[in-house]
Design a protein around this nucleic acid. Structure first.
Lengths: 136, 136
DNA sequence: TCGCTATCGAGACTCTGTCTCGATAGACTG
DNA sequence: CAGTCTATCGAGACAGAGTCTCGATAGCGA
């Protein structure tokens, strides 16, 4: 898999220095980060980068389909650099970790009659391996 | 299926006039409404009801398990009076409608090794029957 | 090089949701 | 029924996430 920067470039997006810094910050983590998590990391590369720039860049990335966004009630939107590969998410109730789950079945067949589904996001809730092992 | 008010009562929640008004407003719609959608409807019953009261009541409802909440990126949290029955959601990209989908398979078996899943929320994206029929 | 256009940065602004705190209302006991 | 205890209420200040505006700047094609 190419880096996020390369994939964004290939999708025709104008890649400015700021967007490159944001994409590198996003790609450099295996986690699912929020926009405000990304700002200090992007500023480590370009100190004068603005908050609005991060939001605008992320919106542009999402529009290309190379970055995914997903929301949990009561939490800021998280961005996922791995959207090029379809996958689901498992959220640990105990520690809050968000784990990528390789997609198995295509779930769009679960759509109700008449509904034309092009994608399905599954979010599993439970306990991750580390938290399930604890007595608490 | 009993009404939401009855189910909340059965779950041991102290049902004040305000909570009853909010529960009736929530139950009286087949849609998936936001807290701020609910406020004017609750005020139609009890005019002096406050915004904080709506949020607090909804949080109490969710805690009983009789009301579900679900989030879409960039949108306020929506509340679902139908949480007593497990179901998924289909979101229309065109008109924004959120449609309940009766649950078919149990999806928790899709969890990765070591992850103990107790529930799975599937959100399908696509076009609802009305929008899919249109050329636009 | 010129000029068009997309992007940028700063910060004000909007919106959603939370918190505080004094007041009030339910529920329980005797 | 009165007293008391506690959960809930209402108002509004507050906090955090995200958007918008607008003048400035940087890419890019001609």
């Amino acid at each position: 898999m190419a880096t996020l920067v390369e994939r964004l470039e290939a999708s025709g997006l104008r890649l400015t220095a700021q967007r490159r810094a944001i994409a590198e910050a996003l790609d450099g983590t295996d986690r699912h980060v929020t926009a405000d998590d990304l700002l200090p990391q992007a500023r480590a590369r370009i100190p004068e980068i603005g908050r609005a720039t991060v939001y605008k860049a992320l919106a542009a990335f999402v529009a290309t389909g190379q970055v995914g966004e997903f929301a949990l009630p009561g939490e800021p939107v998280r961005y996922d650099p791995n959207a090029g590969v379809a996958h689901h998410h498992a959220v640990c109730d105990a520690c809050g970790a968000v784990i990528d789950v390789p997609i198995g079945d295509d779930l769009t067949h679960l759509a109700p009659p008449g509904f034309v589904a092009h994608s399905g996001d599954l979010v599993l809730h439970g306990r991750c391996a580390a938290c399930a092992g604890q007595t608490s």
